[in-house]
């Protein structure tokens, strides 16, 4: 009897709790959405004003190879090219290493491989980028200078530093994908008399390829957006490099180097915002590609 009398009260209490919880989470989400929209709006208006207000032509900006703000020349192609080149190279260097590390952990010695490598990889992911840049500058650059032509600083050094920074991203995604692979697929392959290597490259890799590519794309996205470490080793010359051992610039390195030397609202400043806009658009593209890969994987 007593519990029956309590029921309406309890019900009201539960409803209030539900309502508060729902209200709180909704506010958090709205807050996030407002912030994201504000950032996109701000970057876009600033970025577009280079072309709309300062009358820099879009094609000169995208395809012009001379960056000389004093002469009113805002060709960002060297930086766009530099960004794409370094992040692509970084992905090319890091992907095989990451996939092999992931295979080692999941297929070759699952017993201790994961215990040993997982913390190492998490550690790699946690090292601040300035430390990577510093190490790159102090160890990699002198090594490159002694081994290859040029000054040591340049595209190759940038790509190598980036590749080490994106190793954890690709490795952890590849490891998860390999771990989620149904056991019975491997058994089917072994059951046909395939060796471990035949199983790895005939069944395992093809099956998890979309997930591995997702990791590679996310790694590239990280490399594309990394500023500090690259800036420290790439040399920051505003031209299109003709060799991997030549100094170059990326979108991010130009922004970080120049942002404090320009006046808000000036053409120079707006041009930097335009580059930020390109970075942002590329992020959207990367996210889109990842979504596409995920959808393909489900089929």
């Amino acid at each position: 009897m007593k519990s029956n009398q309590d029921t309406p009260l309890l019900l009201r209490k539960h409803r209030t709790e539900e309502w508060i919880g729902r209200g709180y989470t909704t506010i958090c989400v709205l807050f996030l959405i407002v912030i994201i929209i504000s950032i996109v709006y701000f970057v876009a208006t600033k970025g577009i004003s280079t072309f709309a207000i300062n009358n820099v032509s879009l094609s000169d900006f995208l395809f012009g190879s001379t960056w000389s703000p004093d002469d009113n020349k805002f060709g960002a192609l060297p930086f766009i090219y530099g960004s794409f080149l370094t992040s692509l190279l970084a992905a090319v260097i890091a992907s095989p290493l990451s996939v092999c590390a992931a295979l080692f952990m999941t297929e070759i010695v699952p017993s201790w491989g994961k215990k040993l490598l997982q913390p190492v990889i998490e550690l790699l992911a946690g090292i601040p980028s300035v430390v990577y840049g510093f190490i790159g500058l102090s160890i990699l650059v002198p090594f490159m200078r002694d081994t290859f032509p040029g000054q040591g600083i340049g595209v190759a050094a940038g790509a190598i530093v980036l590749s080490i920074m994106i190793l954890p991203t690709i490795t952890s995604i590849a490891t998860d994908a390999l771990g989620a692979l149904p056991r019975n697929l491997k058994e089917a392959s072994y059951g046909l008399g395939a060796t471990r290597w035949q199983t790895i490259y005939g069944v395992i890799i093809p099956t998890v390829l979309p997930s591995i590519l997702t990791g590679v794309v996310l790694g590239m996205a990280r490399a594309f957006g990394e500023a500090l470490a690259v800036q420290m080793v790439i040399g920051n010359a505003p031209h299109i490099p003709t060799s991997l051992f030549e100094s170059a610039s990326t979108l991010t390195s130009v922004i970080t180097l120049n942002m404090s030397n320009t006046v808000m609202g000036s053409v120079q400043n707006n041009a930097l915002w335009s580059m930020a806009m390109i970075l942002m658009l590329m992020t959207f593209v990367f996210v889109f590609v990842v979504r596409l890969l995920e959808r393909r994987h489900k089929l």
Binding site: E187, G191, L192, G193, T195, P206
Partner: peptide, 21 residues
């Protein structure tokens, strides 16, 4: 050599496990 042995003795499992091919 188990790879040779397993050609001689084939196996089919409880759940169909075709390759994603």
């Amino acid at each position: 050599d188990v790879t040779v042995l397993r050609q001689k003795i084939g196996m089919v499992w409880q759940r169909p496990n075709p390759f994603y091919k």
